[in-house]
Amino acid sequence: MAAEDRHPELRTATLDEIIGREPPRPDTVTAVIQQTVKPEAIERYEQWLRKVMPIAARFPGHRGVNVIHPPAGTLQYTITIRFDSLAHAQDWFGSEARRQLIDEVAEFLDADENVETRSGLEFWFRPTAGQRPAKRYKQFLLTLSVIYPLTMLVPAVLRNLFGRVLPTPNYFTEHFIASAAIVALMVYVIMPRYTRLMSRWLYK
């Protein structure tokens, strides 16, 4: 965590002062970039990708990038890049460095790139080409079916663990660790698999 993101005064703040604070923005922002490459330019395009990724990683708030290679019969690459806030994502996408990189790759592409920016869990409800968007009530029910058991089980497991390691655990520390564990399980473990498993119902 950067020094400017820390708030030492919270160590001595009262419970009422904490409750009165505006919550921080909780989720990462994910940008989905789709680029269709000319058949004869694939090797040069892949070299360009290897150049871009470490440059993007130098921008503040960068949280990782994934490249999904084209399915059989297509030449469309999908790149997902994550930032810790919309402001940091905009810094990258509006930068002169990225503009120069896009100028470099233009000759390798068969069409203009497509960029969509999504925050938090909304990313996992992004339909594939040709699918209708998932109805909001289905997104709500699917997310609730994950959140509800996690908020029951994770704190109970951690409370049992803390009881063995720390006889009198700090409430805020315990709550923070439980929240971080739930978000990590949602984003990295459960939602990517669960939305694929339920896709027929979700996008019906």
Rank of each mutant, 00 (worst) to 15 (best):
M191R: 04
S119Y: 01
R132Y: 07
W201C: 15
Y77F: 15
A184C: 11
I68H: 04
R159C: 11
T168S: 15
T143D: 09
P155T: 08
T30W: 05
K135W: 15
R98I: 00
R82A: 01
T117S: 13
L166A: 09
V189K: 12
L49V: 12
E174M: 06
A57K: 05
K51M: 09
L161I: 07
Y148T: 07
I55G: 08
P39A: 15
P155V: 08
K51C: 09
E113L: 05
L161Q: 13
I19G: 03
P70G: 03
F93R: 00
H69A: 14
L86G: 00
E46K: 15
W201M: 07
I19Q: 03
I42L: 15
P169T: 05
E9P: 00
I18W: 06
A41C: 07
A178Q: 09
F123N: 10
P70E: 03
P70M: 02
V105H: 13
I147C: 14
S95G: 01
R6D: 08
R63P: 04
V29Q: 09
Q34S: 10
S199R: 04
R6T: 07
V157Q: 06
L75A: 10
A56R: 15
T117R: 14
N160I: 09
D16Y: 10
N170H: 04
Q35L: 13
A111L: 05
E40S: 15
T78A: 02
L49W: 05
